[in-house]
Amino acid sequence: MYTAGIDIGSVSTEVVILGEGGVKGYSVLDSQVDIEKTAEEALDMALDMARLGRKDVAYSVATGYGRNNVHYANKQVTEITCHAMGAHYLFPNTRTIIDIGGQDSKAVALTTDGPSGPRVVDFCMNDKCAAGTGRFLEVMARVLDVDIKEMGPLSQKSTKEINISSMCTVFAESEVISLIHQKHNKEDIISGLHTAIARKVLSLVQRLDIREEVTLTGGVMKNVGVVEKLQQELSPRKINLPEEPQIVGAIGAALLARKYVCS
């Protein structure tokens, strides 16, 4: 039996096909204005990879901001629960999940106490401020005139980290512009930005009771620079990084779909 998990985020859309023995196929697409169309395309791509057709999918769960716009999904669950379930599936000792997405960042606390498996006990999300989200990096990449995907590798070449002290996106933008004018290396500035984002996200995580192990999820975790800074800030706790951090929510959704179809 196969189930599908569809995660429609503000930046990207992911679909995971789950079968006996694990993930059979997945896809990642940029989210388009037409959410439904993107969701269809992503589903077909993932099914192609799994060599399956739509009729093979017994149940599907949609999550993410566009979750209510996926007409083929049987049920909608928030990305908070889905990321937690996905992270727990990949790393069963996970108790805290940190997810940095395009427009939201969140920290989730999980428990496995009780008879019926893992469940979310507490969570925190960013407020209207974009400082700890993928959006923040996007704005800064534009100011620095670099590809957002290069930010991670570039930051690793940093020799002298620059302190970006501003917590506010608007202030940080002006701070970065001054730094560019002062002829600081882009690499060093980027490294500083990664620290700033890690600090901001940490302020969310701290509001929960942080338990080990901590699993990092979400598209921004593809950025090695951010991951490194988070590891430093959270040290010495045990940190897990999934191979494909951005599909964890979709994995969680597919897992929940399996649960629903069985119950």
């Binding site: 928030t78 908070i80 629960t81 979310v120 006990v121 969570f123």
Partner: peptide
């Protein structure tokens, strides 16, 4: 989204 997630948390507690 936040309220949905909170309700999911409450639901998780009620077996």
């Amino acid at each position: 989204t936040r309220l949905d997630a909170f309700i999911e948390v409450l639901g998780g507690r009620k077996e």
